[in-house]
């Protein structure tokens, strides 16, 4: 009796772990989720959902020519700047004022700042506001 209930408990734990992993993995596969860039400034958000479900883009609209699949590649380069965007690189490939709103407008739509970054990371902004 005792063994049986222990087995049931273990099974429940195992199933829930596998399910959680599948959900997390599935989420990653569906779209890339929310990408938070922290370089060169803190912080910029890119939401895959807005671009795939919202704007109707395909994966290969951006990958691998404009952005590599692997997170953090663009960020590691020195030319990942607003100036490059104005020249049509990275986000600027679409955000040129024609295909999508121009890169030099609506700054805070993508730039969520340190406060936005703290929220994304689950920390309260009150912790940083200084009073």
């Amino acid at each position: 009796m005792k063994d049986k209930s222990r087995f049931a408990g273990l099974l429940a734990v195992a199933v829930s772990v596998i399910l959680a992993a599948a959900v997390a993995h599935g989420g990653d596969e569906e779209d890339g989720g929310r990408i938070i860039f922290t370089k060169p400034v803190k912080a910029v958000v890119f939401d895959h959902k807005v671009h795939v479900a919202g704007a109707g883009l395909e994966c290969d609209s951006c990958h691998d020519e404009i952005f590599e699949m692997e997170t953090g590649q663009a960020e590691s380069r020195d030319d990942f700047t607003m100036e490059s965007l104005y020249q049509g690189k990275y986000c600027g490939a679409c955000h040129d004022g024609d295909t999508a709103f121009a890169s030099n407008t609506r700054c805070t739509l993508c730039h969520i700042g340190v406060k936005g970054y703290m929220r994304e990371m689950g920390g309260g902004e009150a912790a940083r506001s200084g009073h």
Binding site: V41, C107, H111, G113, V114, K115, G116, E125, G130, H131
Partner: peptide, 30 residues
């Protein structure tokens, strides 16, 4: 409307003027 809350201003101010973490001389409101 050019402010993106990167808070480099805050960091520079803290460094330059030795502002403790519980106070501020300048900050960014949202």
């Amino acid at each position: 409307n050019r402010c993106i809350d990167c808070e480099r201003c805050k960091e520079a101010c803290v460094r330059t003027n030795h502002v403790p973490e519980y106070g501020f001389r300048t900050t960014i409101l949202e």
